[in-house]
Computed example of a mutant assay.
Amino acid sequence: MDDEVGGTWRQAQAIGGSGTVQAWIATEAHTVSCGSPGNCVAGGFPVDPGGVQRAFAVAETHGAWGKAIELPGTAARNVGGVADVASVSCAAPGDCAAGGFYTAGGGIRHAVTADRSAVTATSLALSAGRARFGRERAERLSVKVTSPTGGTPGGRVTVKAGSRTICAIKLKNGKGGCTLAAKQLRPGGYRLTAGYGGDATYAGSASAAKNLKITR
Rank of each mutant, 00 (worst) to 15 (best):
R109Y: 04
G100V: 01
R77M: 14
D95R: 05
R191T: 08
A125M: 11
I166K: 06
A138I: 13
S127E: 12
G35M: 00
G107H: 06
A42D: 00
V112A: 13
A12Q: 12
G150C: 11
G155C: 03
A42S: 03
S87C: 10
G198H: 06
Y196A: 08
G44P: 00
T152N: 11
D2V: 14
G50Q: 14
A181C: 05
S127N: 10
W65G: 10
G162N: 04
T179A: 08
R116E: 10
G174M: 08
N173F: 06
T158H: 06
A12K: 08
A125T: 15
A206D: 13
A14S: 13
V112I: 15
E28Y: 03
V145E: 12
G100T: 04
A92S: 15
T31H: 00
I25E: 06
G35K: 01
I214L: 03
P148F: 12
D115R: 14
R137D: 14
G99L: 01
A26L: 04
A203Q: 10
G188L: 09
C178M: 07
A131M: 09
D2I: 14
L141R: 10
H62Y: 12
P93L: 07
V47L: 05
G99V: 05
K175V: 05
S33N: 00
G107D: 02
A200F: 02
V21S: 05
S142I: 11
G100K: 04
A209T: 09
I25A: 04
G44K: 00
G7H: 09
G16C: 04
G155D: 05
G106M: 06
G197Y: 04
V157S: 11
S127G: 14
Q184N: 02
G134H: 14
A98H: 00
T27D: 04
C96V: 04
V88L: 03
G150I: 06
I108G: 08
R140M: 13
